[in-house]
Design a binder for these strands. Structure first.
Length: 261
DNA sequence: AAGTGCTGCAACCGCTCCGGG
DNA sequence: ACCCGGAGCGGTTGCAGCACT
């Protein structure tokens, strides 16, 4: 007997999400969390596959997402992490707050790959394409000290550039997200303004992140808690694995939505 | 202005991983 | 130890928007 498909193929909608669908999904997750992605579309009144809902949420609707191109530091970090981890985009994404694996993967394939080739570096092996080429030098001879620094001292630099959100940084992050990101997207703006802005439960400063996440790896259906926190915990865990920065639960718990909500 | 090609991103597909029974 | 189902991951595709002719 074959495995049950993840969704009823005949009755699911595919293709781009509409603003209305986004709104429904955000609304649902806002009020219920996602106890089980498979059941989300049904409960949210969406004719979508649960997988599709998860993807839409994690790659586009999550409130903590940065939008827009990766900045230079992020790009360098991606390059260095890729050299270490290969195409493990989710692991790489875990080190870049507000960035998704899909986004990084796309950015790698469309920008960084070309950039590296242009610089004479093999994007797969990270070795010089031609032996005579000096790695990590731009064609014009510009040196990229940040790359060297990252390669030699990643954890430290990583910690410096991507320190865990403090009250200030989280607020800044959130602000920059809204400034450079969501507010540039009219549909997102609409969704968040309608669904979200008036819901004070988005402030999660009191959330016991260790509790439900540690056990289940997803929200409690009873609480308005967020998968993005899980992502941030991954980042924090990675930082711990790299051997720097002990981040207390208070740090995690102090995360809020930058006062936006 | 219209046609064509290119680019970049959102979304899908299929596989693997992992936890529960 | 094994099986099953759900979640997650990485590769790939489709298409909209843009640049160029």
């Amino acid at each position: 007997m074959g495995r049950q498909p993840c969704c009823d193929k005949l009755d699911v909608k595919k293709g781009p999400w509409t603003a209305d669908e986004d709104k429904k999904l955000v609304n649902f997750i806002l009020t219920h969390g996602h106890c089980c992605w498979r059941s989300v579309p049904k409960l949210a009144g969406l004719r979508r596959c649960g997988k599709s809902c998860r993807l839409r949420w994690t790659n586009y609707l999550r409130p903590d997402l940065k939008r827009g191109l990766l900045n230079e530091v992020e790009e360098q970090l991606v390059i260095d992490l890729h050299a270490r981890l290969g195409n493990r985009w989710s692991k790489i994404a875990a080190s870049l707050p507000g960035r998704t694996d899909n986004e990084i993967k796309n950015h790698w394939n469309t920008h960084i790959k070309k950039k590296l080739v242009k610089m004479g570096i093999d994007p797969v092996t990270h070795e010089p394409l031609h032996k005579s080429d000096t790695p990590h030098k731009a064609p014009n001879g510009d040196h990229h000290p940040s790359l060297d620094a990252l390669q030699l001292e990643l954890p430290k630099d990583c910690a410096a550039e991507f320190s865990p959100p403090t009250e200030n940084s989280s607020a800044d992050e959130s602000r920059s997200t809204s400034e450079s990101g969501n507010e540039e997207d009219p549909s997102m703006n609409l969704i968040w303004s309608e669904v979200f802005l008036n819901d004070l439960s988005w402030n999660i400063s009191g959330l016991d992140s260790r509790g439900e996440y540690g056990k289940l790896g997803l929200f409690s259906c009873e609480e308005s808690s967020f998968s993005w926190l899980l992502d941030n915990r991954n980042i924090i865990d990675d930082h711990r694995n790299f051997g720097f920065g002990e981040f207390s639960e208070i740090d995690i718990n102090s995360l809020d939505m930058g006062g936006k909500f």
